[in-house]
Design a protein around this nucleic acid. Structure first.
Length: 784
DNA sequence: TAACAAGACCCCGAG
DNA sequence: GGTCTTGTTA
């Protein structure tokens, strides 16, 4: 053993790294060196003599896996680290499933359907079944099936499950079980799995083939899982199964950062883990090495409003840092404008102070939903500031890319129906809707894939004759030709040939309008990606058909994986979800408004479900804890939102209140704009107006639903109460919130003088600005 | 059958 | 505001 871990880690980290006698749960606060612990734990295991191939590490993104692997390689050497099994649940599981595919009725070439594929297929099935599309909303059905899969309910089980069935009946969608059944069957015929299947089939594989489970149990002597708070029931159960033999399992997570309940993540998996493994040892990492004290304190203050959490206190020994700047604008356009101006100021300042080679990459703009990115995108472009948007309509979602990939998919897996439908008539080859429908109908009736029909057109599909039949045969021959080339060409050569021969190149070569140019560039970019992939994998796997591996990899990319790892200088724009695990010196959290963050998705009543509100708060916590040096919170008084009333959607501008989370961070850690409290009463007489506070004795009633959870009500102050609450001058300290009879609420900035008669305080009042007051006379009341 | 235009519908978050 | 669907014409 060579590495001195004691030197590299703090005490709790060291203990967590070196404990390998049994199951362990590492509760790791934001920025507490979670990745560091995982990295060194794996290195430690390897240095202790365990072969890397016996270690399975499940991370949240492929990028995290890659980076961790590189860091481990630096500690123990690449020749060891390369044999680690490291990746996301989905990518590791797809690897296992490819190896064992035959056992569950698939081939190793199975396609992974992305969200669009599954959605399209379910839409088709609903149409074929002639269901009422108003009742059977594609999205709802997709979610329902996904929910079932995440609870390990197969289509067959669903049919026989009275709970699910009666629930569907009550909601007027009694035939969902049939949709699910058809969907599963069609996926099977297409030799395709969706994202949820990757998990569910691994579970079923292990359950139905104990010898397979035993093999992997034996193989993965050590199992490590990152971001455990975001695993779902299925993932928890698979991990439990795998770890049963050796019980060398270590999971890391932070319940305060659980933000994926919408895809089945169970915050309780952290607690459940302790029940599943009663001998589990608990480690807590509470020292934050990322952010200033102010940011950590504000984050603690915010999250303390959640009831549901594992107790822990995060602290930072870094500098105190600046207060978190809260900024308010009149609308979203100005919001974007002011953020970009602030970015320019930061960059200018940093350039003046020291040579900063990539100032923009230190900055991130985080938002709740992708649609918020547009205004920032426009503004940054206008100012010629380099930026990159992560997520949203990603590269691989673009039409031309999906079309090109569909060819490749069909070549690898000729049964892939969704790929078939995309390209049967693209580029246009005069195979129209009527002919297509005939092929698909026959295929569905015979429970085979459309390509099978095409390859047996003369015997099976007599309705299609003449030129239409010829065109179909030509198409079939073309795909067969590609397939036969699969063995002799690598992915790059083959895709290049496909693009040429299929007519895609010709189709986008034509006219030179902007749109076509962009498509051309995207196809070129795709070719670059494939080339890079071939070069990367060349020396690792000399195995046949690199195209299959490429397809498998791209379908499981995460938002953080795309375009990662370059050294360019740009401002990062992404959702808070996508920012998870990342850090930036400067973070702007934009759209800090009610109904944005927290986002309220229950259409009619603007009342937050407490559980959802807690998740929104965790989301805000994640955003805040991305910041290292400075954090800016930005909100607008008015916003344009989409409202959905009576099935009609329209865009409407309305008044919006600042997010309740601002207040919850603790005003002592914030630099609030003067207008902050004014904005509460905009266009809504029931909200409280700070200016009225000092004049009036009573608050207006608080009825507005979105306001219910806001600020703990401050009781009306009668003159008698005021006298009773007047603070002893010695209790007034910096950071404390006080109320003054005339100036209203404010925050004590500093206090000077020791004896009671001369003690003075500088106080920033929300409406009256900054004042220095002699405490003897000020009659301040401490609030909260 | 293809090309184009108008209209419908959509949106929270993601592998 | 963008994408998908439907309707119209040659």
């Amino acid at each position: 053993m060579s590495t001195d871990y004691k030197q590299l880690l703090n005490q709790p980290q060291y203990e967590a790294v070196t404990y390998n006698d049994g199951p362990s749960l590492i509760v790791a606060g934001a920025g507490s060196g979670k990745t560091r612990v995982l990295t060194y734990k794996i290195s430690y295991l390897i240095e202790s003599g365990f072969p890397a191939s016996s270690i399975l590490a499940l991370t949240f993104t492929n990028k995290a896996a890659r980076e961790m692997k590189e860091r481990i390689a630096k500690v123990v050497g690449e020749k060891f680290s390369r044999y680690l099994w490291m990746g996301t649940f989905h990518s590791i599981f797809s690897r296992i499933l490819r190896a064992e595919a035959e056992k569950i009725g698939f081939t190793r070439d199975f396609t992974i359907y992305d969200a669009a594929d599954s959605k399209g297929l379910i839409r088709d099935i609903i149409k074929e079944m002639e269901l009422d599309e108003k009742k059977y909303k594609v999205k709802d059905v997709v979610n329902r099936i996904s929910y079932a899969k995440n609870n390990i309910i197969t289509a067959e089980m669903y049919e026989n499950n009275s709970d699910y069935r009666s629930d569907d009946c009550n909601r007027g969608v009694a035939r969902i079980f049939e949709v699910y059944k058809n969907y599963s069957e069609r996926c099977r015929i297409s030799n395709a799995m969706d994202f949820d299947d990757l998990l569910m089939y691994v579970f079923l594989l292990f359950k139905e083939h104990p010898e397979v489970l035993e093999y992997y149990q034996q193989r993965f002597e050590h199992i490590l899982v990152d971001e455990y708070q975001d695993t779902n029931v299925l993932q928890h159960r698979i991990v439990t199964m795998l770890a049963q033999k050796y019980q060398h399992i270590s999971v890391v997570g932070d319940d305060a950062q659980s933000i994926y309940s919408f895809r089945g993540a169970e915050i309780d998996n952290m607690l459940k883990f302790q029940r599943t493994f009663p001998t589990c040892k608990l480690f807590k990492l509470e020292q934050n090495y990322r952010s200033t004290q102010t940011i950590v304190n504000a984050a603690n203050s915010l999250i303390s409003n959640n009831n549901h959490q594992i107790p822990k206190t995060l602290f930072s020994n870094l500098e105190l840092g600046d207060k978190i700047t809260v900024h308010c604008e009149d609308n979203e356009y100005l919001e974007a404008l002011s953020v970009v101006e602030q970015i320019k100021r930061i960059v200018r300042r940093n350039r003046e102070r020291f040579i900063d080679l990539c100032p923009y990459s230190k900055i991130a703009i985080l938002y709740r939903k992708n649609s918020q990115s547009r205004l920032y995108e426009e503004r940054l472009r206008k100012e010629s500031i380099p930026f990159k948007i992560f997520g949203g309509v990603s590269f691989y979602q673009r039409k031309e890319i999906k079309d090109a990939l569909a060819y490749m998919r069909l070549v690898i897996n000729s049964e892939d129906e969704e790929a078939f439908k995309r390209i049967i008539n693209y580029p246009a080859r005069k195979i129209g809707a009527v002919t297509q429908k005939k092929i698909l109908d026959v295929a569905h009736r015979n429970r085979v894939s459309p390509m099978y029909i095409i390859n047996h057109i003369d015997t099976l599909c007599v309705e299609i004759k003449g030129s239409a039949a010829q065109k179909i045969v030509d198409f079939g021959n073309m795909i067969s030709e590609f397939t036969s080339l699969c063995q002799e060409m690598d992915a790059f050569e083959l895709s290049n040939y496909i693009l040429e021969r299929s007519g895609i190149y010709a189709d986008i070569a034509g006219n030179d309008d902007e749109e076509n140019k962009e498509r051309r560039e995207n196809i070129e970019e795709l070719q670059n990606e494939i080339k890079a992939f071939c070069e990367k994998t060349e020396n690792i796997e000399s195995e046949s058909c690199s195209l299959r591996n490429f397809l498998s990899e791209v379908s499981l990319l995460t938002d953080q994986d795309v375009n990662a790892g370059d050294s360019e200088d740009y401002v990062s724009l992404m959702t808070i979800h996508a920012a998870k695990g990342l850090e930036f010196p400067y973070v702007f959290i934009v759209g800090m408004n009610e109904e944005v963050l927290p986002c309220c998705n229950s259409q009619t009543a603007k009342i937050y479900n407490p559980k959802e509100l807690e998740e929104e708060r965790r989301l805000c916590y994640v955003a805040l804890t991305r910041a290292q040096q400075a954090c800016y919170l930005v909100y607008s008084n008015r916003r344009r939102t989409f409202v959905d009333s009576n099935g009609k959607s329209c865009s409407e501008e309305s008044d919006t209140a600042p997010s309740c989370f601002i207040e919850e961070m603790g005003t002592q850690f914030l630099k609030l704009p003067n207008s902050y409290f004014k904005s509460f009463n905009r266009n809504n007489s029931t909200m409280f107006d700070f200016r009225q506070l000092s004049k009036k004795d009573n608050f207006p009633p608080r009825e507005h639903a979105s306001n219910i959870h806001r600020l703990k009500p401050i009781a009306a102050v009668t003159s008698q109460q005021t006298l009773n609450n007047i603070a002893d001058a010695s209790k007034i300290q910096a950071g404390i919130k006080v109320r003054h009879a005339n100036f209203g609420e404010g925050v004590v900035l500093s206090v000077e003088g020791t004896d009671a008669s001369s003690r003075k305080a500088v106080i920033r009042f929300q409406t009256a600005g900054e004042r220095t007051l002699l405490l003897k006379y000020a009659k301040l009341e401490i609030i909260q």
